[in-house]
Design a binder for these strands. Structure first.
Length: 672
DNA sequence: GATCCTCGAGTTCC
DNA sequence: CTCGAGGATC
């Protein structure tokens, strides 16, 4: 009996592999089902023989109450975009120059790329430990994603165990997606059951993957295609991205077969054209193609800019466009007084959602596009998210449509609208006299990245300001549950919860409090820098412009803005009142700048490190809050030197910058 | 003085 | 996500 069980498992795994990975099934679905049921029966008789990697163990488990958070060991990055042939040529030129500079490419030689489809699904990371799938996580913000292990185990295209031995950790990255045919069928059955109809395969895949009840996921026919990797303990002996993909395929992971290895910009563009032609015949949606420098050594050489690799780019298909009528152009007033024209549109379905509003950014933008109220306009979703008015359809302009003129007075408070010379943004001069600005300022102060007060949404903010109950941040801390319960759409329970949330905000991290104040030019990051540098509100309040300039990334403009804010008696009063009367006690930032070796410091990597690639080292430094820069200067904190270090090491010695090796870096990072 | 990069600010929809 | 602008670097 146990022999038969082993045999069934092996056969079913093989058929799975043929079906999902090789796309060459050798038996019918009915035959597969027969084998599957036989295995189920044997396992039912002998529960002690059931193992977690058995093909029967993909049926889903009992619902969870929430998806847990998973921190990626290496961040999941995003890619830069290209939309035009010019941009692709510019990308190729940058790559060629970068590689020529390091001698990896001789002049006139064309760089080698691996071209792939850009799948329109959800990026996930699969973690295998000693060949066994142990965890699956969504991309999330790139640093932290959601734990979707239970759901991912139900996706038949994803092996629960690798087909070849791989020691230690292997993180596989790829896209979970739904085939168009499966999507159509799902919507039919959803419709019959009177359940939610999905707008597109991407949304359906996302909704299915994030189910709390993995039994639902199991019924949804999700697919998976691998395109990359994260942590790899046992790196195979391959030199190219293409080689890595071949290796992943050998391990039993599905990899899309439309990849192509090419040289130079023209061949990249040819791939784009070819893929565009076959796009309607593909079984799944794509939103473009991806070009990656093929050589892994060359990839390391090129490195990263901020969160995106320099060695890869996504060449996107043009966004879907639609035409609709521009009903009106209204202006909004932001928290800094910025006056923004907004297009009110006749609702139109484009790129998977119904669009009714679109920003027009500023006065110049409206002029440049020459859109007028009454025009028929072309609308698209830029970057597939934010709606954008592209241009008017001039043939259909109604006679007498007049050019848009920005009002000279604020529509909310009547103060003058002013546009300083050389600035693109016009601003309401009303300051806190303007209710719109007070509302936005309060909404900003309580937002998640600032004081993080839950339960204080737009509606309530509006009421608090309109009734004159809250004028400054300090007033917020005088609210009681009794009076809040009397506001519209507020019950006793929500009122009490809100008061608790406000109470919790009495001990914010100093940086969050500074960010909450809404000082011009002081965002989340600068606020944290200020908090770390000065350590307390009191110390900051005594700082003059000169002292402020001493903070990293603070120059004359930011220093003047902060000094101006602090010089304003009204602002000082609010701060004093917060601290002295309302029991607000900011807590010093965790890990102040002077006390951690990594956070806020700049690292330069040079030479070959013994165990880490440069990318890995860079990503680990970034994960610990450090910065990685390409060149050595006096502001460089550390130079991490490996074998064959070049001129950067010499320069570091000249400038007296601390030089460490990989072991030293590990020590700083707190690893063994 | 030019250029690259990061940060701030504004915005949409579900 | 995107633009503009401030800051740092070359």
């Amino acid at each position: 009996m146990i022999d038969r069980l082993q045999q069934l498992r092996t056969e079913l795994l093989e058929h799975n592999y043929r079906y999902y990975v090789l796309d060459e099934p050798t038996i019918s679905d009915a035959e597969y089902d027969r084998l599957f049921r036989e295995l189920q029966q044997i396992e039912a008789q002998h529960p002690e023989w059931v193992t977690p990697d058995s093909p029967t163990q993909r049926v889903g488990a009992a619902p969870l109450t929430a998806l847990g958070a998973v921190r990626h060991s290496l961040p999941m990055l995003s890619l830069g975009n290209a939309f035009t042939p010019d941009e692709v040529q510019a990308f190729d030129r940058r790559v060629a120059e970068g590689l020529a500079a390091s001698g990896q490419l001789t002049a006139g030689e064309r760089a080698e790329y691996l071209c792939e489809l850009k799948l329109d699904g959800l990026a996930i990371s699969l973690r295998y430990e000693d060949c066994v799938l142990v965890q699956a996580a969504t991309r999330g913000d790139g640093q932290t994603g959601e734990d979707v292990t239970a759901n991912v185990r139900t996706i038949k295209a994803i092996p629960l165990r690798l087909r070849r031995p791989v020691a230690g950790v292997l993180e596989v990255r790829g896209e979970v997606l739904m085939y168009r045919a499966d999507f159509e069928r799902l919507n039919v059955s959803q419709g019959e059951k009177g359940q939610k109809i999905f707008i597109n395969p991407r949304n359906a895949a996302a909704g299915s993957l994030r189910q709390l009840d993995s039994r639902i996921t199991a019924s949804r026919h999700l697919r998976f295609l691998a395109y990359g990797w994260g942590q790899v303990d046992a790196m195979p002996d391959v030199a190219t991205h293409g080689g890595m993909l071949d290796w992943l395929a050998e391990l039993g992971l599905p990899v899309d077969s439309h990849r192509r290895c090419v040289r130079g910009a023209q061949e990249l563009l040819d791939f784009y054209t070819d893929v565009g032609a076959m796009r309607p015949q593909l079984p799944f949606d794509i939103d473009g193609v991806v070009y990656k420098v093929n050589s892994l050594a060359a990839q390391r050489q090129l490195g990263f800019v901020s969160r995106a690799p320099r060695f890869a780019v996504a060449h996107k298909f043009p966004a879907e466009e639609a035409t609709t009528e521009l009903l009106d152009i209204e202006v909004q007033v932001g928290r800094t007084g910025a006056v923004t024209p907004v297009a009110r549109l006749r609702p139109v379905f484009v790129g998977g959602v119904t669009v009714t509003n679109a920003t027009l950014h500023n006065e110049d933008e409206v002029r440049r596009k020459d859109v007028r109220v009454g025009d028929t306009v072309v609308v698209r979703r830029a970057g597939d998210v934010i709606p954008e008015v592209v241009a008017p359809v001039l043939d259909r302009r109604p006679p007498g449509a007049s050019v848009f003129v920005l009002p000279t007075e604020c529509p909310v408070c009547g103060s003058a609208i002013e546009r300083l010379e050389g600035e693109t943004i016009a601003r309401c001069t009303g300051g806190l006299v303007c209710a719109a600005q007070r509302k936005q300022a309060l909404a900003h102060a309580v937002s998640r990245r600032a004081l993080d007060i839950e339960g204080l949404g737009e509606k309530l903010v509006n009421q608090l300001i309109d009734r004159g109950r809250v004028h400054t941040l300090a007033d917020l801390f005088t609210l009681t549950a009794e009076e809040l319960a009397a506001f519209e759409r507020m019950g006793e329970r929500s009122a009490q919860k809100l008061v608790q949330a406000i109470d919790k905000a009495r001990h914010p991290a100093l940086g969050r409090l500074l960010f909450a104040l809404g000082i011009r030019h002081v965002g989340e990051s600068t606020a944290r820098d200020l908090a770390r540098h000065f350590g307390s509100i009191e110390a900051l309040m005594q700082a003059d412009e000169h002292a402020l300039m001493g903070v990293a990334d603070v120059g004359p403009v930011v220093a003047a803005s902060v000094a101006h804010f602090l010089a304003e008696p009204h602002n000082r009063d609010v701060l004093r009142s917060l601290l002295d009367e309302h029991g607000v006690e900011p807590v010093a930032e965790a890990g102040p700048l002077r006390e951690t070796a990594i956070a806020g410091r700049t690292f330069v990597l040079t030479g070959t490190l013994p165990n880490w690639t440069r990318d890995e080292a860079a990503q680990r430094i970034a994960a610990a809050g450090g910065k990685v820069s390409g060149s050595v200067s006096r502001k460089t904190g550390y130079v991490v030197a490996g074998d064959d270090a070049g001129t950067k090491l010499t320069k570091a010695q000249e400038l007296g910058v601390t030089i460490i090796d990989e072991a030293g870096l590990r020590e700083l990072l707190g690893e063994d």
